[in-house]
Design a protein around this nucleic acid. Structure first.
Lengths: 222, 222
DNA sequence: CCCTCTCCATACGGTGCCGTATGGAGGGAC
DNA sequence: GTCCCTCCATACGGCACCGTATGGAGAGGG
């Protein structure tokens, strides 16, 4: 057993806070429960931090570094834009990042979380859009597809965390991610619908657009 | 002023709870604050409900009816599958449904919310998949795309609620939704990348896939 | 050996919420 | 009018958490 009592530093509290966010969301960042988990008391906490919000700020800074800076740095080492995007998709969907991401997005209405969130989303979508423009998409289309990709990412990790049985596993997941990635990267088939802006007559136009393609070459899982 | 005191029924509390979820999430379903908002006291609440969880259950039943049953019923009146899907997209992205949906998804770890959520997601994705199979997609591909569509929906409303400035407005939003809808409905272009699973050599292959299409027909925002 | 400075434990008061107990106010049945 | 039954107001105890106050324990310097 050997009940070690190594003095704690602010980093220990910050790390514990991030872990708690992954497990219970923002509500998990509570001083007394964290103290119990760290085998100490509030006395320790209020020595290192002014209050709960200070801990939250520190945890959010740590999150920014680990969940955005680091991953973009890693992915950016890939040789070309398409490889970067694929590496990004693989990295963010596969790991244990999801719980923290989901819980933080879910708390984006909190005054301390909101600015960090806005910044992170802006940086991430900008990075994706930059890769897409490098692939030849014009700026507007790249922005659209970047937002599209990010929304899909958000929904995906949300499902993974909240309703895991709705998400396929193993090779089916591979196939699913392939579908998603190609939707983001590939040009549409005939160039009929979608990319056009169309101010008001969207509904009638959309009908004809929807019935356009499928029914013939079922290339899918055959 | 005329401080009316109309007796309250369970439905009033249920409606107030759903409203509170839309504004503050599950934490908003708190007896005393709701009582204040309704201009009454806890005494009223505990007459109509056994406890807080009973109110939550009632609110979730109301949510199921309003946010899944009703909308699927409405959309199903459209003439063909593609029109149904488009109507579904328009209906769920445009309105004030988003806050409640986002906050409830964010609380899907709550023991009372989890089963309701699972049920709703299953029904919704099943409906989308059914339309896609009616459009000629085989079952596996339809399931993939249904999940894809739902994940995109989830991420979209999440962004709308949490970081609205990241989502385009007006005609740009129309264009964006067109991009999304065509990604879900259209067949991929040449059938090169993506739907293949590809175990290890993904990066080199992904390169050729990414640089395949764009750069030519820039139909975008010209 | 003692002094001091860093770090932590304990005790306390305050707040916001849940759930219970109990005493009515108000309106219909008769 | 009076009874009763439905509905609500008030008061209370309890819990979980925040933040403060204060008294040490331990290590290093002199």
């Amino acid at each position: 057993m050997a009940v070690r009592k190594p003095r704690l530093g602010p980093d220990d509290w910050t790390a514990a806070a991030l872990t708690a966010i992954g497990e219970q969301g923002l509500a998990g960042v509570a001083v007394e429960p964290l103290a119990t988990r760290l085998g100490t008391t509030k006395g320790s906490f209020y020595w290192h931090f002014a209050n709960r919000d200070a801990l939250l700020d520190a945890a959010l800074r740590s999150w920014d570094e680990t969940y955005t800076d680091a991953i973009l740095r890693t992915v950016d080492a890939e040789p070309d834009p398409a490889a970067r995007l694929r590496a990004l998709f693989v990295a963010v969907t596969a790991s244990e990042r999801a719980p923290v991401e989901v819980h933080l997005h879910a708390a984006a209405d909190h005054p301390a979380v909101a600015p960090a969130m806005r910044r992170a989303v802006a940086r991430r979508t900008a990075y994706i859009a930059a890769q897409l423009t490098a692939l030849g998409f014009d700026q507007a289309e790249a922005d659209r597809r970047a937002l599209f990709a990010y929304a899909t990412y958000l929904g995906h990790i949300q499902l993974v965390v909240r309703i895991p049985e709705a998400v396929p596993q193993g090779p089916a997941l591979e196939a699913y991610l392939g579908t998603v990635l190609s939707a983001v990267l590939d040009r549409p088939a005939g160039g009929q619908a979608g990319t056009r802006s169309s101010s008001g007559t969207a509904s009638s136009r959309g009908t004809s657009a929807g019935t356009a393609s499928p029914g013939t070459a079922s290339a899918g899982t055959a």
